[in-house]
Structures are given as C-alpha cells and as structure tokens.
C-alpha cells in the first residue's frame, strides 16, 4: 500500500470518482492548470480536460451559486474554496440556498454539492488563512460537515461525500496536509459519513477531537500516558451527522470528557458536544467537562502557536480532568 499524505489522498479520491462518474466536475480558483494552491487538484485538468475541471473567476458566490445550478441539472460538482477564510462571500449561497434547496422545494430539487475547503491554523497564515468556521455550517440545517484527520479517512470520506445525495462541507486540515502520512489503499473504498473512530482505547478520560487537533491530542496523550494516565481518543470524522453513540458510549465508560478544537471557544463545536454529554450522560460524569480551544480572538499571526491548543494545554486538561 502506498504511503500518502492528505493532499495525495484527496487528489486520488477526486481522480477515482471523476473516472468512475462522468457527472463529477471540479471548479474553483486556480484548480485547473495550476492544480490548486495546495495541489489537491493536481493533474485533473490534464486528465479530464477543460470540460470537467474549471478555473473560475475570483468570486466565491459565483463558484457555489453555479455549482448549485450544475447540481440541479444533474452534474456532481465538487467546488473548491481556496481557503475556508474566503468562504464568506459565498455564505448566502451556502446557508440560504444550498442547505435549503431540497427542503424548500418539497424534495423536488436536491442539490448535492460537495464543497472542499482547506481550513485551520498553524501555517503562519494570519487572520485570513487560518480560521476554523465549521460551527457556522454545523449550525445550518441541511448541510453535512466532514473533517478528516488522516489520508485514509480523507479519501474514503470524500468518496462517500461525493456519492451521497446531500450537500457536504468537506473541510481539509491544511496544517497536516503534508505532515499527516499514512497507508492508503489504491483504488476504490469508502468511509461512511457519521461514524467516529476510536483512535486509542483508554479507560480514564475521553478526549473528543477532529481534524488537525487529533494529532495534537495524540501528542498530548503520549505525554500523559508516560505519566500513567490512560485516555481514550475519539476522532469524530463527521461533525454532522454526529456519531453520538460512539461519543456517549465512550464517555459513559470513562466518566470524563475533554474536548479539543481549534476554533474560538465560545459557541464552537465543543459547546454542542458538551451539551450532548450533559443531556445524555450527566449521571456518568465524574468530573466537569473540559474544553481546550482557540481563544475568542481573531486568529493572530506572530502568536499563532500560543493561540492554538498545544499538546501542553491538552495534556494539562487531561491530567486535571482525570485527577479531578
């Protein structure tokens, strides 16, 4: 099995699906000849040509609006928004249109568009190349939100997303685009949406995470495991629909929960997880739930490593929670 990084895995998923299904098209800024600023669409233009892979003008609302129209016509567009930070000009098309089309037409007009977008900090990108806007989309009924943490999942989840019938916001953790490497089977396979993965079994405290933060958590857990702690790590993989069964089963087992995410803390996805645990597993809790998150400030540049939850911060939360 080849060892690939996330970009290669995403690229491979797109290629496989474009070969398999002639309805799949890719559009976005610089995705054509250039192959995307992160190279995720590398080679697609050469293989599939200018009728399947489109460089668009610089207009995110146009990209998503047109992708919706394509989907209504029966194509399967996979638009790329170059950075999640630039998704806001398309916010109206995503939140008011894409998410509601099926519902508002009484089921007549589903619009299965899969929007790929790199997100997250840690690349020295400042405010506008670092944000984690997943909560806006999870909060929008009608959108599925998927965030892989490794190449295997990235490929399998993306293939599931494109084959599905619903709009998906597929957020790719760009900090670990190249750093996260792993064995990826060649050819076709899928990872179903809505299934979390237990990355490490443990008995003492459940650590919930997704995307690049999984790697931070693993690093933190290595530290605290050496001190004798035994945390369980759950990689959510899909934020909506959430695999609440796996989450709750783990918390019921350990009785403690730490939630790690990069986005600003307040009203972030961790708030939802925390509420879920309180609603469904409160009596199993032996310690307060801890959230380790980005601060409620715009994403900084020079101090970005202070801003992002570090392995130290996660480790501290695990220790505090486990020994509460």
């Amino acid at each position: 099995m080849p060892v690939w990084n996330i970009i290669q895995a995403v690229n491979d998923a797109l290629r496989i699906e474009m070969r398999r299904d002639p309805r799949v098209v890719v559009l976005g800024e610089d995705v054509g000849k250039f192959g995307g600023v992160f190279r995720a669409t590398n080679g697609l233009f050469d293989e599939f040509g200018p009728d399947r892979v489109f460089d668009t003008p610089l207009a995110e609302a146009g990209i998503i609006g047109a992708a919706i129209g394509m989907a209504l016509y029966g194509l399967k567009p996979v638009p790329e928004i170059q950075f999640a930070d630039f998704i806001y000009p398309a916010f109206d098309q995503i939140v008011n249109e894409l998410a509601k089309f099926r519902y508002r037409s009484g089921g007549q007009y589903p619009a299965p568009v899969v929007i790929r977008t790199p997100y997250g900090g840690g690349i020295r990108g400042g405010h506008y190349h670092s944000q984690s806007p997943e909560a806006y989309f999870v909060h929008t009924p009608g959108l599925k939100v998927v965030i892989p943490s490794n190449p295997y999942d990235a490929k399998g989840l993306l293939l599931s997303a494109i084959r599905g019938e619903d709009p998906v916001i597929f957020m790719e953790p760009k900090r670990i685009y190249r750093a996260a490497k792993g064995e990826v089977p060649e050819g076709d396979y899928t990872v179903p949406l809505g299934q979390a993965k237990i990355v490490r079994e443990g008995s003492q405290v459940t650590v919930l995470c997704y995307g690049a933060m999984v790697h931070t958590v693993v690093e933190a857990v290595e530290k605290v495991a050496a001190e004798g702690f035994d945390p369980e790590i759950v990689d959510l993989r899909t934020l909506l629909p959430l695999d609440s069964e796996t989450v709750l089963a783990s918390v019921r087992k350990t009785g403690r929960a730490v939630i790690a995410y990069e986005a600003p803390k307040t009203c972030g996805y961790g708030a939802e997880l925390s509420a879920l645990i309180c609603e469904k597993a409160l009596m199993h809790l032996e310690a307060p739930i801890a959230r380790v998150a980005g601060f409620d400030t715009p994403f900084p540049y020079s101090l970005e490593n202070e801003y992002m939850p570090s392995p130290d911060r996660v480790a501290k939360a695990i220790r505090d929670t486990a020994s509460f």
């Binding site: 840690g122 020295r124 190349h129 685009y177 601060f295 409620d296 540049y301 570090s310 911060r313």
Partner: peptide, 30 residues
C-alpha cells in the same frame, strides 16, 4: 484590540496559558 477594552472572559483565557511554557514562533506559510 479584540474590543476597545479587554473583557474579563478574554483576560481569563489568557491566564490559562500564562503559566505554560512559551511556544515557538510558527512555521512557514504554505
């Protein structure tokens, strides 16, 4: 500079990391 004045909740968030060791400056932009 998030707001005109630093609100208490941000001061509290800062205090959470004030005791931890400083991080290195970040890596290169892609």
């Amino acid at each position: 500079d998030v707001f005109a004045e630093v609100p208490q909740f941000l001061a509290d968030q800062l205090a959470e990391i004030a005791t931890l060791p400083r991080q290195k400056l970040g890596g290169a932009h892609q």
